[in-house]
Structures are given as C-alpha cells and as structure tokens.
Write a protein that binds this DNA or RNA. Sequence first.
DNA 1: CAAGAAGGTCACCTGCAGGTAACCCGGTCA
DNA 2: TGACCGGGTTACCTGCAGGTGACCTTCTTG
Lengths: 125, 125
Amino acid sequence: MTEQQFRYCGLNVALKALTGKWKPVVLFHLFHNADIRSNELWRVIPKVSKKVLLEQLRQMEDDGLILREERHHFPPEVYYRLSEKGKALGTALVGLEAWANEHAPAQVADILAQEKHPPLSGQEK
Amino acid sequence: MTEQQFRYCGLNVALKALTGKWKPVVLFHLFHNADIRSNELWRVIPKVSKKVLLEQLRQMEDDGLILREERHHFPPEVYYRLSEKGKALGTALVGLEAWANEHAPAQVADILAQEKHPPLSGQEK
DNA sequence: CAAGAAGGTCACCTGCAGGTAACCCGGTCA
DNA sequence: TGACCGGGTTACCTGCAGGTGACCTTCTTG
C-alpha cells in the first residue's frame, strides 16, 4: 500500500490546476466560447474582482491552460482562449459534470438557482 | 452568455466534493482497496492529523461518497469504503489522471518524487 | 486638455481550511 | 489498577486564498 505508487498523483496535478475559486467558470466560458476579452469576463462573472480574476488567469496561463493574446494595442484588447491542454482538460471535466448530474442533481439545481444572478443591472450583450 | 445556464454547475458540485486537502488521497486509497480502517488511513497518509482526516472523512460521508462501518465494538474497528457514488466519482477522475499524465507529466513526476515519504518508520503491511 | 476607458498593479484586510496538542471513552491485558 | 490501544473530540492558532478600493498607463475623443 505504501510503495504502490498510487496513481492519484496525476489527479493532484489536475486538481491543482483547477484550484482557484473562479477557474472552473473561466474554463467553461472559454470552453464554450473560444475567445473572450478579459473585460468581458469580469462583466460576465459578476462577483469577482479584477485582481483576483487576473491572478487566476495568470495562474492558468502559467499552467498552460489558457493563452493570452493582445490584439490592437489601442484600445487595449486582451483575449484569452484555451490552449490544447486547456481544451483537453475541459473535455476531461465533462465526466465530472456528468457525474454530478447523475449523482447529485439536487445540488446542481441549487447552484443553478443561486447562479441566476438575477439583478444584473445592465447589458444583456 | 449570461442566461445560457452554462453547464459548469455540475462541475462545481463535483469539485466541491473533492475540496479538501486529503480527499483525493482518501478517495484513491479506497478506490483501490475497497476497505480501510481509519487508523490504517492515518498511518498510510503520513502527514495528516487525526482531526483533519476525520473532518474530511465526515464530509465525504455527508456527501455520500463513502460509507462508515463499525465492526466489532472492541477493539474499535471502523472501516471506510466507497459508496456507488464514490466509485462513480473515482471512475470519472480517471479521466483527470489521464489528462495530467498526458499534459503535465513533469509535475506528476514531481509529486511522485515528494510522495516517496521515504522514512515511514515501520510496518510495510 | 480633461475625462474616460481597457488592462493592470499595489497596499491592505479577513475568513476559514487546515494544523497542533491535549484529553475523553470503552475495553483489554499484564 | 494503571498503562495502552483504537477512535474520536475539544480549544486554540496560523497562513494564505480571496476580497476591496485606490491608483497607474496608454490612448481616444469632445
């Protein structure tokens, strides 16, 4: 049991890559949208502060999950999108999605309910 | 983008179930061994304190991932094993394992190296 | 030329997951 | 009868992920 090189090491790595309150959201937005401006992100994810979001984006970039791309230098437009690695991770996560929907539908529904962020005063895009 | 009910809610639920420094290890030990005494766990996971391990086990139990079973009342033997839900989660995590091994082999190797917990004075079981 | 907008930094604060160490309880055995 | 063992609790402490709000920089526009 001790020496058996239990194969959860990779799991740890994967979870570390996902550790961060907003990374999953970011990942999924990018997974479904391919291309997002940072500003758009922190308009779409209503409750995160610039600083924190940036931190997480940096970490994800460092982890090779996402790619940062500055387009025209003015007005400053910075796009983020998934790398291949990131896409692969997204794909792997689909299994977790499925698991949750199958085995914990109630909690999923709960989150959906909260997630309504109902006021959202403003632009519907 | 705002109303699209992005399907990451389930992901959040799944990650919440895994949130806890030691849960992944526990999960994987149980995944591969079916049946472990709590004492054995905190001998095998060298650096965790009783309290914390217990906390995590409780949470996992509450989440329905694991089942607690007391056997003979003396000497107190408490076995933990995965529920169906837990097993399913383990299975879903295999995808993450694979992802890490494919996309971040270096880090996986790092963890393997640290994980050697080389002294482990004692029983090889 | 002042105001505004996008992207980002900086200094500072806070809550809580995780950690430590001592203690409890029931029972056994030497 | 008291030391020990497995399982578990309790009181207390700490680090750091995450949060807040002001500020900077580069450019445009009225």
